[in-house]
Amino acid sequence: MSEFEPKIIAFVCNWCTYAGADLTGTSRMKYAHNVRVIRTPCTGRIDYMLILKAFSAGADGVIVSGCHPGDCHYTSGNYHARRRWMVFRSLLDFLGIDVERVRFAWVSAAEGAKWAEVVNTTVADIRRLGPYTEYQNLIGRGVERSFQV
């Protein structure tokens, strides 16, 4: 069997992390291909529901990233997000959901190298943890249909 290739979905803010990931590209730094980026305006927009939806779409890991505190394009979206994530993360942990599979990071528009590092370490971590079958097994047969888009 070929090596397990983790599936990672990343939710990033437009102004810092998305631009930071652009910089990784312009600097031609290489990183693992496993990540798929979904652009949001700000971490403040990143609903906890999206993280759940990523797992139910079969993600083995999720990255959530935006501007460093103080740098949010909208001044405070990331502060609100930080609180929400703290509560959400506690909740997931309480329910026994593997919080190690959600990587929260601050990556600025200048941190191209950090973006590569965030992706690479997340991919490595998830590779070590293996496929998230525990969660995916919750999606029984026939359930697919109910995720109407």
């Binding site: 305006p41 700000c42 403040g44 927009r45 990143i46 609903d47 949010c72 405070s76 979206g77 609100h80």
Partner: peptide, 8 residues
């Protein structure tokens, strides 16, 4: 258009 309200 930050969308913080939408998430909350």
């Amino acid at each position: 258009g930050c969308g913080t309200c939408v998430a909350v």
